[in-house]
């Protein structure tokens, strides 16, 4: 086996996936070839990093975090459902009320304005009357009608 062939099969050798015959040939080559042996050792060390990474453990409070997150998700969802239903009803009702109020206000404003046509004199008639609640004869009329 030459260096080129060894380089093609090195990862399978590290993984122990080579046929026994090929494995023996490769082993023999590594004994004699320093460069290939260095590559083999480097590759073996690099792939061993996966095993080290697999040893990593998650935070022991991960479940508490998840539970908290789930509780947070559930609470706002209920509020949101209530709000969205409330908003669904409130929006058209508010708009209708505003529309009716607008129409009523418009009509009342229209009625309160008096337009002056050309040639119409500015005569104001007072609707107010002086009231005399005293049903008795006044002193002036008493003196004038003295018999």
């Amino acid at each position: 086996m030459n260096c080129k062939e060894v380089n093609k099969n090195l990862i399978f050798y590290v993984e122990g996936e080579l046929q026994p015959e090929k494995e023996t040939e490769l082993q023999e080559h590594l004994k004699d070839c320093h460069d290939c042996n260095v590559l083999f050792l480097n590759l073996k060390e690099t792939l061993a990093i996966i095993t080290q990474e697999k040893a990593a453990k998650p935070n022991p409070f991960l479940f508490t975090r998840i539970q908290e997150e789930i509780n947070n998700l559930e609470e706002p969802r209920k509020v949101f459902v209530l709000n969205s239903n409330f908003i669904k009803i409130l929006q058209p009702v508010t708009l209708s009320l505003l529309l009716v109020l607008g129409v009523v206000f418009g009509i009342s404003m229209g009625n309160s304005i008096q337009y002056q046509t050309p040639g119409q004199s500015m005569v104001y008639q007072s609707d107010e009357f002086y009231l005399n609640d005293l049903q008795q004869e006044t002193i002036e009329s008493f003196l004038l009608t003295e018999e």
Partner: peptide
């Protein structure tokens, strides 16, 4: 695995 081997060996060289 072949792709990884190629990339890693190139890097070592």
């Amino acid at each position: 695995k072949k792709n990884l081997q190629k990339k890693l060996l190139n890097y070592y060289k």
